[in-house]
């Protein structure tokens, strides 16, 4: 027992680790803020293109979504940070050389846009076709019907799956450690190396759980509330 406490819950090391991890959490929050915003907007646009009446749009969006759903985020991160930088320095294209945090935001956005596109598409698909027909029969254009009738209802449906996606995104920020982003996992490994004790990892685990556990609770409550067939949306 003493050994367990010494190696995994060492209070001295914990006290030393926590302030440094707090700074790392700020970095995580920063990445999350932008990646979440961009990937939701990107996902919505992709979803609308995916169901567009224009075939080329449907086709391009479909390729994008399949591609990024099929690639490991770790590969995308590496590609964007190291891969682009390599090309950038060889070809003298400085704009391709990204700082670690913008690179992480870009990679997560690219990948998660594909995920949220599928969520938005399912959400839009869950709204009865009669809603669109009623809107069109009142003289609204396709765009107006989407904007005022279908999307406001679809947004409510997609809140629980999007919350789940946010939880996954929080955990995936740990992958940014491979491109030297000073986030929680990276920091804790660094400290672990210095103190030769895995307690910093415990601190990191706690840091992630502080973010994720409340959201997990929120997500399951939202799922119950917006669950299928419980009651009509909008009551």
């Amino acid at each position: 027992m003493d050994q367990v406490i010494k190696y995994y819950f060492n209070t001295e090391i914990l006290a030393d680790t926590v302030p440094q991890l707090l700074r790392a959490l700020v970095v995580v929050a920063e990445i999350l803020f932008f990646a979440l915003l961009f990937s939701f907007v990107g996902g919505l646009i992709l979803a609308l293109l995916r169901i567009s009446r224009i075939r080329v749009f449907r086709w391009l969006a479909g390729i994008y979504i399949d591609l990024f759903r099929g690639l490991p985020l770790l590969l995308v991160l590496t590609y964007i940070y190291y891969g682009l930088a390599l090309v950038g320095s060889e070809a003298g294209l400085d704009f391709l050389i990204l700082d670690p945090i913008p690179a992480a935001v870009l990679a997560i956005t690219l990948t998660y846009s594909a995920y949220s596109a599928e969520i938005f598409r399912a959400g839009i698909g869950s709204i009865p076709h009669g809603q669109m027909e009623a809107a069109r029969s009142l003289g609204m254009t396709n765009t107006q019907s989407m904007r005022y009738i279908v999307l406001p209802q679809a947004i409510r449906v997609v809140v629980p799956p999007l919350t789940n996606e946010l939880i996954a995104m929080i955990k995936d920020t740990a992958l940014a450690s491979v491109i030297t982003v000073p986030e929680v996992l990276q920091k804790s490994r660094e400290i672990m190396g210095r103190v030769a004790n895995p307690t910093p990892l415990t601190a990191a685990a706690i840091a992630y759980l502080i973010f994720t556990l409340p959201l997990i609770r929120v997500a399951s409550r939202l799922e119950k509330r917006f669950g299928k067939g419980t009651r009509p949306i909008g009551m």
């Binding site: 009865p128 809603q131 029969s137 406001p152 209802q153 009509p232 949306i233 009551m235």
Partner: peptide, 10 residues
Amino acid sequence: FQQFNLFPHK
């Protein structure tokens, strides 16, 4: 329509 199709969020 048969199914009313009112907008439930309004």
